[in-house]
Design a protein around this nucleic acid. Structure first.
Lengths: 144, 144
DNA sequence: TTAGTAACAGGAATAATTACTGATTAAGGA
DNA sequence: TCCTTAATCAGTAATTATTCCTGTTACTAA
């Protein structure tokens, strides 16, 4: 039986009030300003409870730690590969992909997670040319 | 300067010889059978080097730890939400999605990671009905 | 050969997350 | 309104995944 708790409400409210996808640690920092002695364990526990309820979604982008999102309507994300920022993408979900995937494997496909990788405008501005590492003969040999 | 090493070669060979997407720990266990005193740190370091080279790809599915894949051609994955297994999906990559995404955000989109979620055949067989948790009035109230 | 340095094994350190403990407190019933 | 009980809490210890450090080994180029 899930019971009301001020802490859980605050966590949900924080997530609903942001367009970001904060990590557990970020949620903790945010809640602490209004509830100074909440514990990190409580944040983790409630994120798990809320995710279990389907009130929030856990998302995970490449190389990143777990992030949370109060927008549980199925939607896509994109991440800047330079600064690592993750954002919602206001575009329609291609549900037809699920059927296509199901044709290609032996499973009942229910949904999909899609994250685009790119470079955001501000990072693109000062992006440095990719280093063109000189490859040594030896390396080429075994790297073939 | 990247230099030849037996350990790195073994790690790459193991990844190339599997259709799985092993975790670092799994790679470690696999290599240890043929090279008993390789260290876990070496596995991590070489996975990072190989991923840096583009020889392998890091993949991350929801709720999972990092996994590695020697197939660096862009391709999709699917994961069983019951047993957690991750597999390749033999279907074409929808590169047109990148352009669609780019229209929806202020960034240069380069690629995308797509992972389908479903239930594999063997898990589907013995899947149990989702518990229909009785919601209490109080919970409804604050959960609205 | 040998100097230089990438890579190694082993282990310590860090980061993220989960589990435990005893104290609180919401919720339903007397 | 007052109890009972179990969910939740704060605080902390433990675990897990990953990275970093140290002294040693062994490719490579000269």
């Amino acid at each position: 039986m899930t019971r009301y708790s001020k802490q859980r409400e605050a966590i949900l409210a924080l997530l609903e009030g942001t367009k970001d996808h904060p990590t557990a640690e970020t949620v903790y920092a945010g809640i602490r300003s209004q509830m100074p002695n909440i514990s990190l364990g409580t944040v983790y526990r409630n994120l798990a409870v809320l995710a279990g309820n389907g009130r929030i979604a856990k998302i995970r982008s490449r190389d990143e730690t777990l992030r949370f999102d109060a927008n549980t309507r199925d939607h896509y994300h994109w991440q800047c590969r330079v600064c690592g920022k993750v954002q919602d993408l206001p575009m329609a979900v291609e549900t037809s992909l699920n059927a296509a995937a199901e044709r290609a494997c032996d499973a009942k496909i229910e949904r999909h997670d899609l994250c685009f990788i790119g470079v955001c405008k501000s990072c693109g501005a000062d992006e440095i040319e990719h280093e063109n590492v000189e490859r040594h003969k030896t390396q080429e040999m075994w790297e073939t």
